[in-house]
Design a protein around this nucleic acid. Structure first.
Lengths: 335, 335
DNA sequence: CCCCCTGCTGCACACGTTTGTATCATCCCA
DNA sequence: TGGGATGATACAAACGTGTGCAGCAGGGGG
């Protein structure tokens, strides 16, 4: 019934349990042939050292906590896939928790990670609650924020240069000749939304185009939000000829809303997204968007933790560049 | 530097550490007002009991291992989101590992879960390696398979009735008048592929339609595979008028391939998918597909584990019904 | 031949909890 | 007033590892 312990192996090998411990960790303190004998016995008995007992004494769990708003978000799941890859390569396990962007839930997650004594924490969320971060840093464990940033002790970040990328995306539309360019954002207060919005404004400014507040609508970062937002925009007396969307899901919702009105992309209206999700190249028409190196960002975040575990000090903030991918959802305006 | 332990709290409260332990767990053995006093001190000190020390003595980690082929798969990530929800409601943490359907990796994951002493394991993969399952059941811990099935000790399952659902999907195409219906499958040897394929064949048989082996092509379960597969089908001298796809991603690839050839869905060819991913209603045209209750399946799987932890015996195998959702990618054939 | 050094192994303790049992004070009742 | 029951607390052991240190055997050198 119970699991085979190190003492069971020791008994079987007629040695003490510390010797077994050393043999399995290839310590030079134990004679090579006894070590081999012990290892073969352990193998035969199907012995697996208990990570929990080990963690108790080493004070390391080899575990990292990953908080996401929801794992069902395609952007997030790709980031997590990158995290998981590097974590596993280095013997770390990933504990996943979703917060649903609910402050109460965030507190619970922080407590749970604290009790589990995770070695580090990765946060993938476009918004991070104010009560949340102090709680995380309370446990004196490094925290890496992905696509958000907060200057604080123990807190590092990996993010994309939202402003530059958004400016490039908007500039692309301007170069095509668009003058009335709308912005569909995420919910208010989300850091990356704010940054992408200011990139959009900067591009308008540089091109001496007027900023029209009525052309800014907010969705929910999902397809449905894009659908509603585009409805608002198209109902205007003088609708935009191009739309820059906060993210691809939003853009996909917008595409769908435009079709429902019998209009065509890019003939009647141009659309630009953000993220470059896998589906972005399979939409109709294929979506012009900003590529984010999602897996790479996850990998980089995990690597920061690993560095922190070994070297103590290293690079702590990484800013990556997005890349505008021009596909077929953008064209010069016809009007 | 170090975390505050139960002994620190005991010292501060001038009691023994077992008393603190009991006070925090609201044991009736400790006097109500001392208990309250201890709790308030613990709160003030920011004490969080160590789950690892607790697990060592209780022999329960309150942790479940979740294996996925890849978390970046939208079907899987929704299932995991359901798992996570129920797990957290009940104080369980989820440790995530992806296998990439690589047998060697599967073995590693099994070892990792064993060492971490997870209380149960959930597997979300359309294929489960032969060496894999014995390894998992070796640790005498319940395993719930999602969308695959293997009769074995300690092994339970939650799956969708693939045969019935696929039969319904194919029958829908037949009712519309289609006679040359293709099937785009996943890679060979995947259990759900085999089942969906046999549902397809059964529907043809019941309608007295001939089964044409050349109309069966295999993809990779992703959009790219659908793209290649449709290319093969459309290059035939007498191409199909309808295609039933193994899953939505595959169908999305097919939609894209059809458009590239200047043909239209459903006018020139009808497409049916499987899964009903969130994007399925946003494709062009919106996709006719089989709805799988993805989150619900994840929740059900986690609930089986919870039952097993408490009651010892309960329902062990759940088979859910899919639902055909008719949208706009299917219509009567024009030829 | 003795001593010291080296190479290997065992002993004891620590990590932070939970839990069974012993101890002790208090109170009630005989 | 003494004894037993009751309620509250402390003590000790256990969970399965890792590790510093002591001990012990054997070999080599003086």
């Amino acid at each position: 019934m119970a699991n085979v312990s190190i003492k069971d192996v020791a008994r079987a090998a007629r040695v003490s349990h510390p010797t077994v411990s050393r043999a399995l960790r290839h310590s030079s303190l134990v004679k090579p042939d006894t070590a081999e004998r012990i290892r073969s016995i352990a193998r035969r008995m199907g012995y697996r050292p208990s990570a929990v007992a080990r963690s108790l004494v080493t004070r390391r769990t080899k575990t990292i906590g990953v908080v996401v708003t929801t794992i069902a978000d395609p952007f997030i799941s790709e980031v997590v896939s990158g995290i998981e890859e590097v974590a596993n390569e280095n013997g770390y396990s990933v504990v996943l928790a979703n917060s649903n962007a609910d402050p109460e839930r965030e507190v619970q997650v922080a407590h749970s990670f604290h009790e589990r004594r995770v070695d580090g924490i990765l946060v993938t969320a476009s918004r991070v609650g104010a009560r949340y971060l102090p709680l995380l840093s309370e446990m004196k464990v490094p925290v890496v924020l992905i696509n958000s940033h907060h200057p604080a002790e123990f807190v590092y970040s990996v993010r994309i240069d939202n402003v530059t990328a958004s400016r490039a995306a908007t500039a692309h539309l301007i170069e095509l000749g668009h003058k009335r360019i709308a912005y569909i954002g995420d919910r208010f207060g989300f850091q990356s939304d704010t940054e992408r919005f200011s990139g959009y404004r900067e591009a308008l400014e540089r091109a001496d185009l007027p900023f029209l507040p009525q052309l800014v609508v907010h969705g929910d970062g999902k397809a449905e939000g894009g659908l509603h937002a585009i409805a608002t925009l198209m109902a205007m007396p003088d609708p935009p000829t191009a739309v820059f969307c906060y993210n691809d899901m939003c853009a996909i919702g917008a595409l769908s809303g435009i079709r429902q009105r019998g209009l065509r992309v890019p003939n009647d209206i141009s659309i630009v997204g953000f993220d470059d999700l896998l589906i972005a190249s399979y939409t109709h028409p294929p979506l012009t968007t900003v590529h984010q190196p999602k897996q790479q960002m996850g990998r980089a975040a995990m690597r920061i933790l690993l560095e922190l575990f070994s070297n103590a000090q290293s690079i702590t903030n990484i800013k990556m560049q997005g890349e505008l991918i021009v596909r077929e959802s953008t064209a010069p305006p016809t009007r």
